[in-house]
Structures are given as structure tokens and as C-alpha cells.
Design a protein around this nucleic acid. Structure first.
Length: 465
RNA sequence: UGGCAGGUAGCACAACGGUAGUGCGGCUGGCUGUUAACCAGCGCCAUGGAGGUUCGAAUCCUCUCCUGCCAGCCA
């Protein structure tokens, strides 16, 4: 295996004179009369290591097999480069081809490919410059998120992936079953879920929030970070059936604190990734989004605009536009409205709070006006809603009323006994939010399709690899 | 799921209803401490699928599958 200090990233920074070994995959080979140049990459760096292979070091047949995609290892001396474009290069003394890649068949060519073309090549696309940059950023973003919460004393909690209840009373869920569906379809009788693995109907989780609330009532500040599933037939560049979500939940926290944390959280992520992945971001900016750095710096340096839903409606009504969807107090903001607020009116992130209770989830805390709830959506340019959260309803009687008023929509009071118990035993005001991890990745990388920021995207009709 | 736009060679694209091409990639040779190398040669292989109209369909019609964009659902 490659030992610490011997990744291509490290070799590029070492001083000439060292004898080193490098392992990785070939990007391209260029031949001179008496010398071959090989661009080698092991995924650690957006810059390749140039290997210089003098004629005669390995037999011609071996040279011929050093083609785009081949896996090789090289030993030799790091030397100051005679050519332009790199400080050091590896002068090969020995070279081994571990796995050739027939150039007649290897799908990746030494030229630019469309992202759409690479998507069906999920087993190979990680070797491209673009995706190696994207996935290094993804790795760094994970680290940044944990660091942000760990520094603040938050406890990392793993919410269950299998859930017996629909967390928000809405949204399509994937059912989880160990029953033999083929056999069941041949029976005339209705399915008895008591015979199923868990003795009841179960689903893949759509949110870890309710479980996070449990832990917030024991550890005060907690966060989840794990996969989440939606069976919606959404076909957009912003939706996945399987995605990662970060959900902090804080006791002793109101909506103001919640907004402060969300703003600090977003800024911290951008700052850390700018610090840790600048070469990758430069690559992505060059090829995919010339405004990337400008946008990221705007997020860091601006103070987020905070407006109420009621104010937002007024602003939209006097925008002097023909909205495709009319703006009326009581209806949800549409994409076109959110984009106007964050991209045109304020030109920076916007936090909208205090939505009508009818369009938000049952667990959000009722405001004193009787009409709105303590909800918040964080909108950022280009992505739209990147965070959704709220202060939670901590008053037992109020929460019970809300659950009962949803009974007509299939919400069962009994299923929420433990959620209600949190309000009976040591309840406290608390709040939290959920951030779509891949949405944040899109913002950070400038990638325009969410399928290009997750290793193996799951979307309607697509679960390959 | 709805609206719109597309599916032609390994990739990117072209072709008035009349012989299916160009660039890149690949291969072959040449040249050069090269850098998305350069020069010359070789088409290597193709109209997503099923019907229909026509003397003749990549092109027109119907159905279907797939992809992208916009919208809805949301994170």
C-alpha cells in the first residue's frame, strides 16, 4: 500500500534527490525519441506526477502497455524538472505495470468528457480530474462538518436508518420488508405485517430529527450525519432518492440561536474547504464555474439577510413581476420566489422565518399570532433551499393538539408516545435544522447536477453500481 | 409526475425524403525534454427500440425506452 508521505500529493512537494516510489493510474503517455513522459495520478492531487522513463529501462512491449488507465508503480529518483510545468519529476529506475487498460476498449479518453457521459461510467469516473477533485472536496467537507460540531461540544449521534414511523407525516418512503413479495402477490389475503421481520411496517428513514431530539434531551447539543431516503419520483438536478443529511438539534435553543448556528455552520464549511482544497476548487472554477470563488467569498463575508415570511410575501408582491405562481400570504414560496430573494434582491444568503402553520410540519413551534410557526429556511443563490429547520414545539398540550389535528391525514397519536414523553419529562425549548449534504457540495464545487457530487447516485430508475 | 429539448462512430457534433460525414480519441509511421505535444496515414464503427407512410426514411407519422432542462415534491 501507499505509505503516508508517498502519495503523489506528497511527492510533488518533496525536494529533488530523494529516492521514492510512486503508484497510481496513468493519465497519458507522451513519447520522445529516447524518453517517455507518463502522467501519473493516485487520486491524492489535482496535479499529476510526471514520470520520466528513458528508453531501455523497460522492454518496448511494457512501454506499449503504459496507456491511459493502466495501473503502474515506479521507483526512481525525484529530480528537478528540465521541462516547464512542474518543479520535480520522477526519473524511473524500475517500472511495473500491474494492470493494463486496452486503449481500444478503455472508455476514458485523454480528452474532456461530458459529465453526462461519465455518469453511466460510475466505476471509472472517479479516476477523472473532475471527479477526483469533487470527491476530495466531499471528504474535506465531511471533516469540516465534524470539526465544526466537535469544536462546539456537540455529540455525534447515529439515527436509525430503519424507521417504523413517517417522521413528518408526509413524503413517500421506501418500505423495508423481509417478506416474500412474490409469494404475497399470489395470495388473495391482505398482507399481515405482524409476520414481517420487525412485526410492523417499516421504512427507510426520511429524517433523523425526531431521534436527534431524544438525544438533545440528554446531551443538549447533538448532530446526526447519515443517509436519508425519499421515494419521491423527483427528476431534477437537485434531488436524490438516497442522500446525506446533517441534522443538529440543540436544547436551550430558540429560533434566533438556530439561525445564528446555521449561518456560522455554512460559513465555517466554506472557510475550511477553501483552506483545505484550494487547488481542487481552482480546477473546478476553471472548468465549471468561473464565479465560484466570488460566490464562496460572498457567503463568508456577508451577514445573512433575515426576513419573515410575511415580509418576503410583501417584497415579492411589490417586485413588479409576473410570477408564474402568484404570491399570496398562506401559500408556500416557489422556486422562482426563493431565487428572486437570494439571487436578485439581496444577492446573498437569506433566512426566511415564520411560515404559515398550514404549510409546515406538525412539530414546529406555534407562534403567538396563532397563524405562523417558528420555521426557518436558509436560501442561497443557485441552490435555493439548503437548510430547513425550526424551533420545536416543546409544550405538551400544544403538541398533542397538533398531532390530533393531523389525525385526519393518518397521523396516529399512539405512534408518537415517546415523542410526547420528551415534553412530559424534562422538556425544554429546543431547535434544530437539516442541511442537505449534497446541496452543500453543489454550492462548494460549482457542480450543477447533484448526481455529480455523490459517488453513486440513486435516482428514479437508476441504482447501478 | 407534467411541460420543453434531444438520442447518428469510443467521445463531440453534421447530413434539402435520394451514396451517412467532420473534429477529437484509437491504431500505424515520423519528429521533438514532452505538457490537451506536433506532423502524416488508416474509418476502426454508427442512425435507441417496434410499427407505419414512401420507389426510397437518420430525416415524415404512431407507440415505446433513455437522457437533459424547467416545474412540482423537498434537503
Amino acid at each position: 500500500m501507499i505509505q503516508p508521505g508517498n502519495y503523489v500529493r506528497d511527492l510533488l512537494r518533496r525536494a529533488p534527490g530523494d529516492t521514492v516510489s510512486a503508484k497510481g493510474w496513468v493519465k497519458t503517455r507522451r513519447d520522445g525519441k529516447s524518453v517517455h513522459f507518463i502522467q501519473l495520478n493516485d487520486g491524492s492531487s489535482p496535479t499529476d506526477l510526471q514520470v520520466v522513463l528513458d528508453a531501455g529501462v523497460v522492454p518496448p512491449a511494457v512501454v506499449a502497455s503504459i496507456t491511459t488507465g493502466a495501473c503502474i508503480s515506479v521507483e526512481g529518483e525525484l529530480v528537478a524538472s528540465l521541462g516547464k510545468g512542474q518543479a520535480v519529476e520522477l526519473k524511473a529506475k524500475t517500472l511495473v505495470v500491474h494492470g493494463a487498460a486496452d486503449p481500444e476498449e478503455y472508455p476514458l479518453q485523454k480528452k474532456k468528457h461530458n459529465l453526462e457521459t461519465l455518469r453511466p461510467l460510475g466505476h471509472l469516473r472517479a479516476r477523472t480530474n473532475t471527479f477526483s477533485a469533487v470527491f476530495r472536496v466531499r471528504n474535506a467537507l465531511c471533516r469540516a462538518i465534524h470539526q465544526f460540531f466537535q469544536e462546539r461540544g456537540f455529540l455525534y449521534v447515529h439515527a436509525p436508518v430503519i424507521s417504523a414511523s413517517d417522521a413528518e407525516g408526509a413524503g413517500s418512503m421506501f418500505q423495508v420488508t423481509a417478506l416474500d413479495l412474490d409469494a404475497l402477490t399470489k395470495q388473495a389475503k391482505p398482507v399481515d405485517f405482524e409476520q414481517d421481520f420487525f412485526g410492523k411496517r417499516t421504512y427507510l428513514t426520511v429524517s433523523g430529527q425526531l431521534e436527534a431530539e431524544i438525544f438533545a434531551h440528554a446531551f443538549a447539543n447533538v448532530y446526526t450525519f447519515g443517509p436519508t431516503f425519499r421515494a419521491e419520483n423527483s427528476n431534477t438536478p437537485r434531488h436524490l432518492a438516497e442522500f446525506y443529511m446533517i441534522e443538529p438539534e440543540m436544547a436551550f435553543c430558540d429560533l434566533e440561536d438556530n439561525q445564528d448556528l446555521a449561518e456560522a455552520f455554512l460559513k465555517s464549511q466554506v472557510e475550511q474547504v477553501l483552506r483545505d482544497c484550494r487547488p481542487d476548487l481552482e480546477f473546478l472554477s476553471k472548468w465549471y464555474d468561473p464565479d465560484l470563488f466570488k460566490n464562496l467569498e460572498t457567503l463568508i463575508n456577508s451577514s445573512f439577510e433575515r426576513i419573515s415570511y410575511t415580509e418576503a410575501v410583501a417584497l415579492l408582491q411589490k417586485a413588479g413581476r409576473n410570477w408564474e405562481f402568484p404570491v399570496d400570504w398562506g401559500t408556500d414560496l416557489q422556486s422562482e420566489h426563493e431565487r428572486y430573494l437570494t439571487e436578485e434582491l439581496f444577492r446573498k444568503p437569506v433566512i426566511v422565518t415564520g411560515y404559515p402553520k398550514e404549510i409546515k410540519a406538525f412539530y414546529m413551534r406555534s407562534n403567538d399570532d396563532g397563524k405562523t410557526v417558528a420555521a426557518m429556511d436558509v436560501l442561497v443563490p443557485r441552490i435555493g433551499e439548503i437548510i430547513g429547520g425550526s424551533q420545536r414545539e416543546e409544550r405538551y398540550d400544544v403538541l398533542l393538539d397538533k398531532i390530533r389535528s393531523h389525525a385526519a391525514h393518518g397521523m396516529k397519536e399512539e405512534a408518537y408516545w415517546w415523542y410526547l414523553d420528551l415534553r412530559r419529562f424534562g422538556g425544554v425549548e429546543h431547535a434544530g435544522f437539516g442541511m442537505g449534504f449534497e446541496r452543500m457540495m453543489m454550492y462548494l464545487t460549482g457542480m450543477k447536477n447533484i448526481r455529480d457530487v455523490i459517488p453513486f447516485p440513486r435516482t428514479p430508475g437508476n441504482a447501478e453500481f
